[in-house]
Design a binder for these strands. Sequence first.
RNA 1: GUGGGUGUAGCUCAAAUGGUUAGAGUGCCGGGUUGUGGCCCCGGAGGUUGAGGGUUCAAGUCCCUUCACUCACCCCA
Length: 426
Amino acid sequence: MDTIQAVRGFKDILPPETGKWQFIERLAREVFTDFGFLEIRVPILEKTELFRRGIGEATDIVEKEMYTFLDRGDEYLTLRPEATASILRAYLEHTLYAADPIARLFTIGPMFRRERPQKGRLRQFHQLDAEILGIDDPRVDAELIVMLMHFLVRAGLPDIHLEINSLGCPDCRPAFRDRLITFLAGKQTALCEDCRRRMLSNPLRIFDCKLETCREQLLSAPKILDFLCPPCDTHFQTFRKYLSIADITPSINAGMVRGLDYYTRTAFEVTTGALGAQNAVLGGGRYNGLARELGGPDIPGIGFAIGLERLLSLIEPNDAQLSPVPHLFVAFLGDQAGRVAFDLANGLRKVGIRTEVDYAGRSLKSQMRRANKLNCPYTLILGDREIAAGEVQWRDMRSSLQETLPLDGLFETIRGKLLEKGQTLV
RNA sequence: GUGGGUGUAGCUCAAAUGGUUAGAGUGCCGGGUUGUGGCCCCGGAGGUUGAGGGUUCAAGUCCCUUCACUCACCCCA
């Protein structure tokens, strides 16, 4: 019989790797909390309708990437492809805005998109999401970026680039869009097949094209930033000013777009050169129209999503992130010693001393080999001989020095010895 | 969804133009005389060569199908 394999594009995260995940999640909780964010946990399954409205009918995600099924024949449900829609849904459903007009929320968890897997792209992947709801002030936009950059630096991320843009608002974007379409119409024959298709479906996306010939054509294209209405322009200028106060100097990427109508003003991305074609580590922006789109009041919001797999792939593992090494190994010989070892080891563990015992009934040599392999700094050796004499052997694995300790009060003696050697116990 | 590449022990890889019981390193288990790790030495286990079909006297090697992984496009985290 064949062994069952994981679903395509779904990955197991195995032990040494999980240490990195714990590190980054701990760091995120710490940093985000410092910036006033509270954790929210939302379901990974939602009514399909939520995403159709919250992400947009015409997007690739909704058109062809969602895991959707008919539940018991009467309702379509979808495994969430992103978290913002769910957070907004929960926020509106529980009228959180009634208790406090401004909410800062974050969440960490898996997302699902049925795309063809490749480097940095899984079908189940994980995002770290943060949202600020209820305020449209550009200083909030800047603050979100400040937190983000601080987080990335503390995560040890090398070589990153912040790009920002403004997408305008429903007042000013249509004019830009019209001018762009007019401009492109004249260039049509010079553009690649994809871009000609994009002209119709999502003209702003043409700026994403990587072909040199298309890029050249776009050099003289109209720029969204030249079309911003006064309020949007002021917002963007203030946003930039506060970034500079925080010593953050992004590059402006007028080609960065979010195609949907309710995305407004600030948009940003952090990219890296180390990820192949999937170079975005994180993306975010303002979505002042979203709450309304979901049937709620007109509440502004801004947020971002960090791709954890992508982020983690950029971080070199260090000792703090790897599985912690045990404090000591208990080796024993004989039945009587085995009973003492069992009791002793579990007692030590209960007070936060990471203790290893090998119950496989192997030779002392084998047990010592294992202690060495696990990198245990100390080994306790107890045989029936020692037990009978009321003592045990305490071996320092680095110096190979060994001393005899009395069985009486052993528990406290060990605690003391470990503390004295600078081991950090709980 | 489209195109390219790759699938041989747990892992990293060998097996010239098809030709005996598919090898190595590493890891794992054990041993190197009484109950002591690392280095070293010795031994052992572990593979229906991703799966299924075909060509052939003979297939890990060639052909087809399928699955998986991977890179790129698309799109995005």
